[in-house]
Amino acid sequence: MVSHFGIFLPGCSRLHRLHPLTKLTFTLAAVIIVFGGPGKWFSALVPGLIALAILASAGLARIGLRITLRILVPLALMLLFVHGLFSPVNQNFILQLAIFKVGREGVLYAVLVILRLTAALFSSLVLVLSTHPAHLVQALEEAGLSPRFAYLFGSPLLLIPQLSGRIQSIRAAQQARGLEIQGNLLRRVKALFPLVAPLAFSALVDVEERALALEVRGFSAPHTKTYLNALQDSSWQRLLRWGMLALAVGLLAKRFVWA
């Protein structure tokens, strides 16, 4: 079950203390370069290695690798299976497995995709592992995002455990009333509505009260918002953000415009 904080890990490293927008820009720039940069293997490897180095500097490399493995191993296996054995561009065959032949082109393609996904994942973990979601939301607000939309980004995180807990009690209540959740397909399909609907109804009924409570605390007030704790930013970080974006756009242009 996902906790309130998701996979964020608190810490005091340099990375943790960077402004959330700097990290977000890094992730975006890196992902753009990984998928859109010139020189397929180069663009896949370099941002990924940089991201891994950054994670290591913050003591997050091990957990980063663990999460990456969890997400990517099934994908990697399938990629090798599907493209190694069945890719339509397979021409040179390097291996024979039972009745299947493993093709070189397919394997290379699969490895490239795996590298890209790994690099993209490392780059996003640089942001996600080191940034408290509430700080990211505040950073976006300070940058001009309307507080109304910041609410949409911030509040679901804490509501998730609340609604999750309700599922268990609804299930218990319905089963006590004779609802069958095992058995043939038809029976399970019939159980769908009685389990989903009460949760949806109770969640939706709360919506009105939530909206009222927000309004009463000045949610729609036209005042300029102030913050209890300001986020630390610096001019070199601002420079860095623009620099990273410029690099990403430049490399994109190099691949598509000046190829």
């Binding site: 309130h4 509430a134 910041a150 509040s155 804490l158 009260e209 704790n229 300001a230």
Partner: peptide, 27 residues
């Protein structure tokens, strides 16, 4: 009670600050 929580704040202290922030009270 649960519906009156903003859902945006991770501590009791910050939760109370929510309304103050909205109204532009100096930090």
């Amino acid at each position: 009670p649960a519906n009156q929580l903003s859902g945006m704040r991770y501590t009791v202290y910050e939760e109370v600050a929510f309304g103050l922030e909205n109204l532009g009270v100096p930090s």
